[in-house]
Design a protein around this nucleic acid. Sequence first.
DNA 1: ATAATGACTGGGG
DNA 2: ACCCCAGCCATTA
Length: 111
Amino acid sequence: MARNSRPAAASSFFRQVHELVRQIPLGRVATYGQIATMLGDPRAARTVGWAMRAVPEGSDVPWHRVLNARGRVSLYAFEGGDLQRYLLEQEGVVFDEAGKVNLDRYGWRGD
DNA sequence: ATAATGACTGGGG
DNA sequence: ACCCCAGCCATTA
């Protein structure tokens, strides 16, 4: 049962974020703020970032399809930036000279 | 319960 | 176009 040992994080916002991100089609991207807005909290963008950070490695959640509002990879601040960009390019997403993605073209519209 | 944290965002210079 | 600042929220490092 481990009912009382379950982390609080796995009980609410987290889960909603993961389920929504899992619906982003291959070759498309979404922003933290967009995900937050779809869940009803336009200002919870930072929290969405935490949810991404908590995604386990073997997960089926396409965390690499989430970028910041400027179309850039926020993960460069750490060490997964190159990997994220690589994964997206493998799906056909193009980055410009400034390392940005055209959201008007690759942005997920929600379905 | 309080304080600190951060894969964010929009606006201003 | 780019850089910097203050505000926001859920989770807990």
